[in-house]
Design a protein around this nucleic acid. Sequence first.
RNA 1: GGGCAAGUGGCGGAAUGGUAUACGCGGUAGUCUCAAAAACUACUAGCCGCAAGGCUGUGUGGGUUCGACUCCCUCCUUGCCCACCA
Length: 862
Amino acid sequence: MAKSSSKKEIPKYNPTEVEPKWQKYWLENKIYQPDMDKAKKPFYNLMMFPYPSAEGMHVGNMYAFTGSDVYGRFKRMQGHDVFEPIGLDGFGIHSENYALKVGKHPKEQAKVSQENFYRQLRVTGNSFAWDNKLETYDPDYYRWTQWIFIKLFKKGLAYRKKASVNFCPSCKTVLADEQVIAGKCERCGTEVVKKELEQWFFKITDYAERLLNNIDGLDWTEKVKIAQRQWIGRSEGALIKFKIQNSKFKMKTIEVFTTRPDTLYGATFMVLAPEHSLSREIARGNNEIAKYIKESQSKTDQDRIAEGRDKTGIDSGLRAINPVSKEEIPVWIADYVLMGYGTGAIMAVPAHDERDFEFAQKYNLSIKFVIKPIENDLDTRKAYLGAGQVINSGKDWNDYFVPDAIPRMIDDLEKWGMGKRQIQYHLRDWLISRQRYWGPPIPMIDCPKCGWQAVAEKDLPVLLPDIKDWKPTGAGKSPLATVESFVNTNCPVCGGPAKRETDVSDTFLDSAWYFFRYIATDFKDVPFPSSAFHDDAEVASNNFRLHKAGKSSDSSRNVSDANVQSENFKSSPHQSQNRTEKWLPVNMYIGGAEHSVLHLLYSRFLTMVFKDLDLISFEEPYSKFRAHGLLVKEGAKMSKSKGNVVIPDEYIKKFGADTLRLYLMFLGPFTQGGDFYDTGIEGMYRFVRRIWTLIHTVNFSTQSTGEGLKIMNKTIKKVTEDLEALRYNTAIATLMEYYNFLSKEQTISKEQIEILIILTSPFAPHISEEIWEFLGHKNSISQTNWPRFSDKFLVEKNTIIVLQVNGKIRDTFMVEKSEIDNKQTIEKIARQSKRAKKYFENKQIRNVVYVKGKIINFVIDN
RNA sequence: GGGCAAGUGGCGGAAUGGUAUACGCGGUAGUCUCAAAAACUACUAGCCGCAAGGCUGUGUGGGUUCGACUCCCUCCUUGCCCACCA
């Protein structure tokens, strides 16, 4: 090691002193607070904000945040004005359930969690823009969540509908389809049942095609793109009408959706979902059928899954006519057909669908094959799903080959007036209402005269009342329904007595737009700046906590409102109206893959709606998204029940945040996750202390030379490329190799050391600042430019050529770079190899493969 | 049932067609010490060998190639996501 001969005094590395010192420095000097209006190279570096409800931040949160922060710090040093905000997703069932568990009012618990979480976040060394923090349960925030609801309502995108919905008996609320995982409640794991309730929905299905088509253009983790495509679930097919024979009901035809119109001749019966309106109509005059429908509805999804493929059903007694074969076919009612997809009715083709085949066998229904395989014989013991030749399908279709001929067959159906081409999506409308307390009240009023009306925008927010009986009731209504002072109000249209909606909105609505609010937390009277608000009288004109004003306060309303809290709010929406366009869409979004469908899809949807409202000019919220991997503990998933959840606090106390950050980023590829071992972190602590010691003992030479320069440039190149690709583990390995090299050198230049510190600083920001200061710098290391590498130092003078015989390595030798184009010379040197000679001497050399500058391979006969 | 990943030393992992096991953990031996810890140094895939060296080796079996952890096919295993979606 390059130690001084005279023994220097080495100060002890003490992270518990160094780290708070720099955290304080960053905060006081607003080092990480970009100028939101004047920033020249804005870079929005977003990480998914946490639910603060658990027992505090666990190491999985820190893993995700650190990975995002490292990238943000890297971009900042590359000259970008990085905006890296943080907040808390504290509204919602998750937080409320935690409050229930610990027996505290959610509002009280939120205060405790907030303090604890922010304290933890402060000591992890992230470069957060603290001035812009937000919490979803803050009225300043949810006021705008409610505003969004109103905007959607006015645009016809929020509507009420009575529907069979998922209901969690434990959480006592309805759930979105997305929150039901294999028939169980995503939050508590209880089996979900179906309930018939009137609910608020968002019409996300109107955006299905756009949501799907835009995916191709996104720079996102491929896995997440696939998950979204699958969730939206586009399929092409046909809508086909079947006439009902002698229908005594209102409905004279049954319409079905099918992706296999080519099998229409094989449709030997039909099946209606129990919830189908025709099923209900039939049930009115038939007890047995009514009973079947009731039973199937009371089943949990879990029951249905447990039953597997043992299908049940009942003959409705109706007969329909197959439009092409003209055969009379029975109509059944069975719960293997779902109301939520297609038309809620199917044409059953048992010969070519496994489910229909099974059902037909159980109930002895006829099976008619209309496709046969081209090569093999038809096996009539099971459904045939493959491609093939059309048979038994009349003169028009016989001998067609499917699936190729399907489009032509749909054309025929259209021509014959029997059906039409149809594109169907699996995506369903977003169920928004929740019968719970801890969320933003849905800002709607039900007037006996005027019907459902939105709360006037000037009256927002509809404050969540502070009540004692906040626990879920399970009666299909929110606890707010019992608060008369809340419920009773006046109609915003006619002024007469009316009642408020008492449900609150889904947590996913809170988190679907938070990145818009981050950039505008200093704006009181708009959700986010937009030129569209300029002339929009209904926005900005309100009396809610309006701040008294800069020069532009034309609004003289209720300045003295008792609620005024902050002096920092700007009152003019016109000012800085470009801010939204300046910062959004988000440049880099990093978060968990578990939000692949829900959160990412919802925020895309809202962004599109904002675009359609002319509030913004873009329609995709996140230009780039990367999912991080899962952090496990010694091979096992961390969970409270196993008691192996790692809490970062104790490790930070013992080793410091820098060591923990480095360790977390080192233990595996960030996008794939990693395995946390206590012994591993000790090794990282060793590395940090070694750097500290090296700095305090090194003898500086004046300049970097030869090998040193080369290695330095190589290191810069590798670390830069790795950081851009989020390959943090190999970036750190490279830094270790660089340290190992430096520690063995007799003399080191100051430049070589500074490069080491700069490159390490995104991972270990505190110790880097401390060393940077020790080296005599006055600025923050985060304000230093990221070093560039120069290719001219990367050129090797000599190259190692590997000598193979039949692909096996037999020797290596060094040649000058200038020789590598000369195959003859290389071959000549190779033939002289003492070690390899015996393998090709006296053998017939059939071929010599030379790969320039890398390898020479003699191919011989054995 | 469908979709997507991934299988490499004792362990976490590196290498994406060209010297497999970088970096780290753990282990062994040594230096320092009365001793221990820390720190530092060396070794550390398996087998054979005193050594020089050789053979084998990236879940399995095959293929493509001068050359395969890497590309293609078969099977096995594990993880994640979705799931009676017509």
